[in-house]
Amino acid sequence: MIDRLSQDFGFLQQAIALREQRQEVLSSNIANADTPDYKARDFDFKTAMTNAMDQRMKLANTNLTLTSPRHIPGKAVMPSDIDMMYRLPYQPSIDGNTVDMDMERVQFADNTMHYESSLQLLSIDMKTLQQAIQQS
């Protein structure tokens, strides 16, 4: 039961954290819409979420101690958190800025909607758990 709860809450916690991080990236793009040579950035939420959930099953950065020079060194390295990508502009500007305000606003609104729905799911799960505890 506890494992099921921690999996469910862990997933939602990770989703909310990634949505928050993406919101910051999109906000930065919007804030720099008039900055010459600014390159708009973003990341693929699905890939980042998959990587984050896979990392829970991996070892932290580890180096094994060798007891013989003939042993093969063992290493476990955590992958980077998020692969940031540059957004390709549909219509490049003369000053080198790649921020498309229409696209950024749509992405920002979409991410906000997903962020709020994740918070609502977490709230519903917490209320359901609280009711189950009170009834026991």
Rank of each mutant, 00 (worst) to 15 (best):
residue 1 M to L: 06
residue 1 M to D: 03
residue 4 R to T: 13
residue 6 S to Y: 15
residue 10 G to Y: 08
residue 11 F to T: 06
residue 11 F to Y: 13
residue 12 L to Y: 11
residue 12 L to N: 05
residue 13 Q to L: 10
residue 13 Q to Y: 10
residue 14 Q to K: 11
residue 14 Q to P: 00
residue 14 Q to L: 04
residue 15 A to L: 12
residue 16 I to W: 03
residue 18 L to F: 01
residue 18 L to S: 01
residue 19 R to D: 10
residue 20 E to V: 08
residue 22 R to S: 03
residue 23 Q to T: 14
residue 23 Q to I: 07
residue 23 Q to V: 02
residue 23 Q to N: 13
residue 23 Q to Y: 05
residue 24 E to M: 11
residue 25 V to M: 01
residue 26 L to P: 09
residue 27 S to W: 05
residue 29 N to C: 09
residue 30 I to N: 05
residue 34 D to S: 15
residue 38 Y to C: 09
residue 39 K to R: 14
residue 40 A to M: 09
residue 46 K to P: 03
residue 47 T to Y: 10
residue 48 A to D: 15
residue 48 A to S: 15
residue 51 N to K: 14
residue 52 A to D: 07
residue 55 Q to T: 01
residue 55 Q to S: 04
residue 55 Q to M: 08
residue 56 R to Y: 08
residue 56 R to L: 12
residue 58 K to L: 13
residue 58 K to W: 02
residue 60 A to F: 03
residue 60 A to P: 00
residue 61 N to E: 09
residue 62 T to V: 14
residue 66 L to V: 01
residue 66 L to N: 06
residue 67 T to P: 00
residue 72 I to N: 05
residue 74 G to R: 03
residue 76 A to S: 10
residue 77 V to Y: 03
residue 77 V to P: 03
residue 77 V to F: 02
residue 77 V to E: 12
residue 78 M to W: 00
residue 79 P to L: 03
residue 80 S to N: 09
residue 80 S to H: 06
residue 81 D to I: 05
residue 81 D to N: 11
residue 83 D to V: 11
residue 85 M to S: 11
residue 87 R to T: 03
residue 88 L to N: 11
residue 92 P to T: 01
residue 94 I to C: 00
residue 95 D to V: 02
residue 96 G to T: 09
residue 98 T to E: 08
residue 99 V to C: 06
residue 100 D to M: 09
residue 100 D to R: 09
residue 100 D to P: 12
residue 100 D to N: 15
residue 101 M to L: 15
residue 104 E to H: 08
residue 107 Q to F: 01
residue 108 F to H: 04
residue 109 A to D: 06
residue 109 A to V: 09
residue 110 D to C: 03
residue 111 N to W: 13
residue 112 T to F: 13
residue 113 M to K: 06
residue 113 M to A: 09
residue 114 H to N: 07
residue 115 Y to F: 15
residue 116 E to Q: 15
residue 116 E to G: 04
residue 118 S to I: 02
residue 119 L to I: 11
residue 120 Q to V: 15
residue 121 L to Y: 09
residue 121 L to E: 05
residue 123 S to V: 13
residue 125 D to F: 01
residue 126 M to F: 08
residue 130 Q to R: 13
residue 131 Q to M: 14
residue 131 Q to V: 00
residue 131 Q to P: 02
residue 133 I to G: 00
residue 136 S to V: 11
